[in-house]
Simulated assay, not measured.
Amino acid sequence: MQLTIASGKGGVGKSTITASLLYLLKDRYRLIAVDADAGAPNLGLLLGVEEWEEEREHFGARVARINTGSCIRCGICMEHCPYGSIYVDGEGNYVVNGLTCEGCNVCGLVCPVKGAISLEEVRSGVIRKATTRYGFPIISAQLDVGRPESGKLVTEEKEWAKKIMEELNLEHMIVDSAAGIGCQVIASLGGADVAILIAEPTPASLSDVQRAYRVVQHFREPVYLIINKADMNPGFTELRRWAESEGIPVLGEVPYDRAIPQSMGLLRPVVEAFPDSKASGALKEIARRIAEEILG
């Protein structure tokens, strides 16, 4: 099965919970982890990855290039660039800023000189494979600065993970999605068997997890909810009421616990670093329910 863990909002503890669940389930199932936050991958840090065993470059983004030999310096391209990515350098040449160019080709369409502007394919990022300190593999990706294609990077990650699952006869893929509802999240949820949403009891988190839930509904996937920092705002009951109204099962509530930031400083899942903490007790119960009710 493929389980995707999403939140709709950053900072709610999604990667922290994912790392702990992987640690708790690793002895019962043959797992592979996928860090699908290509903009800010951090799951590998919590799982003890110090060196990547294999890296693959991903190409797909396009950037405009101006041929200074053919350019007549009319400035029409700079006037029409919707991203303001064209400027004049110290020698009077029109140049494209490759970090902000989106490859839309507006400049090429308005240029009066045929062939003076072309689109070139550039690297979007890198996809990496490693073995965690706990013995199971992880696939991660790092998006290059200023590059699009984050959704395609995540898709490539998952395809590589599927091949490894076949080669090593692994059972389940657990995907740590990015925050928000952008293309990375959509790619993370596509093809998943189950979505697990993480939220905290605040109005902002409720609003964002509702948006993430609408994305999950598009894929018609079973969905569950974990409430993190559950005792942080005891008067806020709207999160649970919303879950009940939508028929979303709550797998459990994780209390606020100083052991979690301490374990992050140690670069270890809290259930390993502080197994007797309040948060670890709640996470162990959640892992048990996932094993019994979802993974079987």
Rank of each mutant, 00 (worst) to 15 (best):
V215H: 06
R240F: 07
I66V: 13
Y213C: 10
S124F: 05
C104A: 11
M1A: 13
I127Q: 00
P261N: 10
I127C: 00
G151Y: 02
S140T: 15
P203F: 04
A161D: 01
E221W: 06
K229R: 15
I174T: 05
E253F: 02
P261Q: 11
P148Y: 05
S205N: 05
P234N: 07
L197K: 03
D35Y: 00
V12T: 12
H80M: 12
V271W: 11
L143Q: 02
V270H: 05
I127W: 00
A192S: 15
A38E: 01
I181L: 09
R289T: 04
V216F: 08
S7I: 14
A230Q: 02
K152D: 11
P261W: 12
S150L: 02
N169H: 12
R288C: 01
I17E: 04
G75M: 03
V95F: 13
A61M: 10
N97V: 13
G265V: 14
P82W: 01
A178D: 00
V113M: 05
S15C: 12
G13R: 02
V126E: 02
D193P: 09
V223F: 00
I86E: 10
G190R: 09
I164G: 03
W160K: 09
I164E: 01
I226D: 11
L143C: 04
N67V: 07
P201C: 08
A291K: 12
P201L: 11
G151P: 02
R268S: 15
M165D: 07
V126L: 13
A259F: 12
G146T: 12
V106A: 09
E159G: 01
Q184K: 10
